[in-house]
């Protein structure tokens, strides 16, 4: 066990490895080109199953240690079977996961010990959009809110700065706040 001031903060994030990756990518930019993948297979009704196992990055095919599977469906209020969360809830899950993971990483780099981090994420949606009843209402969320309760060895300002920096570096936050090209093909 080491006793340096650095090692006393442990949020379980290997910052040295992340900074090392930044260094490596700086020298070899193609290492940074990643592709993330998922499949989605219809089961019945609005129930579908998604499998995630492989991705591409660091110049090679990569794999999670196991295949992950998710059921997606809609609740009974939509006359569906509720075999899983709705796809739009997955988006909230993704945003929370991305921001919370980011907070841990930024806190580690800034030598801030976290004790607890909890986000409550809400997305407001007007169903007139997806039901095709009002062309002025978009299908997606009209407003997404994330509320963090964080207990850490830091001032309130430092905690706010953590949360702000995490948003700045978050892929899902970027995807949700900026337009993204999406192409859907049938093969």
């Amino acid at each position: 066990m080491t006793t340096t001031a650095e090692s006393q903060v442990d949020n379980g994030v290997n910052v040295e490895a992340l900074l090392g990756a930044r260094e490596a990518i700086g020298e070899t930019p193609e290492l940074a080109q990643f592709q993330w993948r998922a499949t989605s297979t219809w089961v019945y009704g609005t129930h579908s199953q998604s499998e995630i196992e492989t991705f591409y990055g660091l110049n090679d095919e990569q794999k999670h240690h196991t295949s992950f599977s998710f059921d997606l469906d809609h609740p009974e209020q939509f006359a569906a079977t509720d075999k899983g969360i709705t796809p739009i809830e997955v988006v909230l899950v993704a945003l929370g996961g991305c921001l919370t993971g980011g907070i841990a990483a930024v806190a580690q780099q800034r030598q801030i010990q976290l004790r607890s981090v909890k986000a409550t994420i809400t997305g407001d949606m007007d169903m007139h959009g997806i039901l095709g009843m009002d062309s002025d209402v978009r299908n997606g969320y009209s407003d997404v809110k994330v509320k963090y309760e964080i207990d850490a060895d830091a001032t309130p300002e430092e905690i706010r700065a953590l949360v702000a920096q995490s948003q700045k570096r978050s892929a899902v936050y970027d995807i949700m706040t900026n337009p993204t090209n999406v192409t859907v093909d049938v093969v």
């Binding site: 702000a164 948003q167 936050y173 706040t177 900026n178 337009p179």
Partner: peptide
């Protein structure tokens, strides 16, 4: 963030860029 079919699209990140600058 972009212009598509004559429509300028703006990022929803304004609250955070303002928070970053204030901090």
């Amino acid at each position: 963030a972009g212009i598509r079919d004559g429509i300028a699209q703006f990022s929803g990140s304004l609250p955070n860029v303002c928070a970053l600058a204030d901090l």
